[in-house]
Design a binder for these strands. Structure first.
Lengths: 143, 143
DNA sequence: ATCATTGCAAACACTTTGCATACGC
DNA sequence: GCGTATGCAAAGTGTTTGCAATGAT
């Protein structure tokens, strides 16, 4: 989906239709949220934000929808923070960094040669996660 | 600690003493378990196995002990399986692979150039986790 | 009318906390 | 005896499940 195109509900509907996912209102809103918030939100964040707009939204629906999106491969999830699962509209393998002080998660734009391998030590690789932890540049500044 | 040396309780006691961790019986047993089971056990596995030997052992003690070991940097933990935390006596950065069919976790003996960097995009890195997911060689064989 | 989606409430699994007891020096 | 380690039970947190209500075609 072209970044420059506006995320109209019609475009999103089309997008889900192509993936054979019934484009219900809630699903469209959750997809839109993920596309517009590349900050690796948790279920809780999505719930807090979207329930302002959709008063009757339940967490179950968010769980259901995210599982569906995951299964269909249109989103991915990270476990860089051991306490919660974060969701990411970007499914291409990339590197994440989490600050152990402030908890911020950054995308790292670093090519990793491991991403090119399909078989490693006999195992077939389908997913790559690289998690770095430490002190982020902002926290380093303020130290 | 030299692999060839036997893991006597005395050696373990000495080891914890050096790290300024009071070497209680439970702590020694849990440390010994981690050293002898490099299979990335969960709290539950440690509890199931060790409570056979130590009838009064509680999970709280295992949680306490593992947090302490983590804090002191003598073990590390992995979140490759989003549903549970696994513990690893190996604290050197290395690569893990999990099979999405059988759930087995393998250590991958692969050098990764990212491990050599201390600063990436301005952030100070103190921990590296590389998680690969896919189908393990055993499951590939049986497919 | 039928089938899928939604949402509440309960169940679940894992982890942490509070506090009383036991242990070691 | 004092400070730490331990362990039970309860509370907390994040996620899943069962099932009834709602919605779309």
């Amino acid at each position: 989906m072209n970044k420059r195109k506006e995320l109209t509900m019609d475009k999103l509907r089309e997008y889900l239709d192509k993936k054979n996912i019934h484009p219900s209102y809630h699903r469209l809103k959750i997809l839109k949220y993920l596309m517009e918030h590349k900050t690796h939100p948790t279920v809780d964040m999505i719930y807090k934000d979207l329930s302002k707009e959709i008063a009757t939204l339940s967490k179950t629906t968010i769980y259901n929808t995210l599982s569906l999106f995951l299964k269909e491969g249109i989103i991915s999830c990270l476990t860089i923070d051991e306490n919660k699962i974060m969701y990411d509209y970007n499914t291409k393998p990339h590197v994440h960094f989490i600050c152990i002080k402030c908890g911020c998660v950054y995308d790292i734009h670093l090519k990793c040669p491991i991403f090119d391998k399909e078989i490693i030590e006999g195992h077939k690789i389908t997913e790559y996660h690289i998690y770095l932890k430490g002190i982020c540049k902002e926290c380093l500044k303020n130290a």
